[in-house]
Write a protein that binds this DNA or RNA. Structure first.
Lengths: 218, 218
DNA sequence: GCCTCCATGTGAGAAATCTCATATAATGGA
DNA sequence: TCCATTATATGAGATTTCTCACATGGAGGC
């Protein structure tokens, strides 16, 4: 955790001098960036890496609900709305972030017009992208969505998500997920090992996605 | 279009005095609130009514992409980002709005901390809701999603969306949409007339949705 | 009027997905 | 250790949804 002193790209998002509050922070794969229900003491800006958002249901089970991809802010919702209960966020790959100590400057950030404007633009752009994404995705068969999912979740060439979690996220039954995974294994795209499913043909997965996207332009 | 002079609920969202720029405006069903590609001259706040968001594809066809429901701002994305090309928005039911003349105060609004903060909170809450909604929906069979869709789209008890548009929005084939609509007719939930499908059993549609939501809590 | 285009509508078989039943590890308490 | 719970795994039949083929009707251009 070293201090940033010189010019910093993050400074572009603010009118105030944010640099005194910034430090660098890395999270290892599977490490929690934010624990569910625990109010974060930092506002993060994810420079590199992927993370997954969780929420736990009334019945106690945990659900994967979304992905976070660099570059973007993390924890801005909790900063904006003190009443919102934070969702859990866990690193997929190594995540390097700037962390901004909001205990020192949270109220000033919330009066920084440049930052608020940037955030509004970012959030509305993301909303549009999310909608597009949902619309595009909903008509694809599991084979395609699973291909995307595996590529997003794989670390060092290995896919090792719990099937129950994946099935819920993908909106299909456990049974059917297993069925399609078995197809991938039969086609030699995946190989089952003790460390998880090894991705043998990344290109085949990418191909599935690309073809489907293009076919849908009818 | 009458002037608002006394206290106004919209004022709560702003630090500046917004009242001089506000007027009331009503849109009839099927009337465009924003035409695609045409930069709106007002920021709207929808008080009552429902509207649908459109976008036209590269190939010239038009796609329904989302719903807007009161109360919420309309046109805030275009205000925030002058480069964004506006999506089309059409009233489903009668929509009453406040309209804020941004030619007179757009730059002041964009420096209004209270407004920007409200908008950030609103956008992030909406993003969360959208995600939840999408997650919940994706696993439902068409029967359920169509029930919701019909309830949202019906005006005065009549559903009359073009099937091509509806099928695309719901992410199913035209063929299958027709099949499920025919089921609804057979069950006496809908009745086909020259003015569109008449909704005969609103409660049956609501029941479909509710049951499915509850069943999914396993 | 005639032609084209597109939305509407129907049938039949195939593919995707679900339900249910059942069995075997793996995991976490008591 | 043993038990209870949960994740993993597979089979078989039912339901949902898709594909494709084809027919009809309306709207606009000429």
């Amino acid at each position: 955790m070293k201090q940033i002193s010189e010019s910093n790209p993050l400074q572009d998002f603010f009118e105030m001098d944010i640099r005194p509050y910034i430090s660098l922070k890395e999270f290892e794969p599977d490490e929690f960036i934010i624990r569910e229900g625990e109010r974060p003491t930092y506002l993060y800006y994810l420079l590199e890496g992927r993370a997954k958002l969780f929420i736990s249901q009334e019945n106690g089970s945990i659900s994967l609900i979304n992905f976070i991809e660099a570059p973007c802010f993390i924890g801005e919702m909790e900063l904006l709305d003190a009443n919102r209960l934070p969702q859990g966020l866990k690193a997929i790959s190594t995540c390097s972030c700037y962390q901004i100590d909001i205990s020192g400057c949270g109220d000033r950030i919330l009066r920084d017009v440049k930052f608020l404007r940037y955030l509004c633009r970012f959030l509305s752009t993301k909303a549009t992208q999310n909608t597009d994404n949902y619309m595009r995705n909903q008509s694809y068969p599991l084979k395609i969505r699973l291909a995307e999912f595996i590529l997003k979740m794989a670390v060092n060439g290995y896919y090792r998500e719990p099937h129950t979690e994946a099935a819920e996220f993908l909106g299909v039954t456990y049974r059917h997920l297993l069925y399609v995974l078995a197809q991938f294994v039969k086609e030699g795209i995946l190989e089952k090992t003790k460390q998880g499913y090894e991705v043998k043909k990344t290109e085949a997965l990418r191909g599935l996605i690309k073809n489907e996207v293009h076919n849908s332009q009818y």
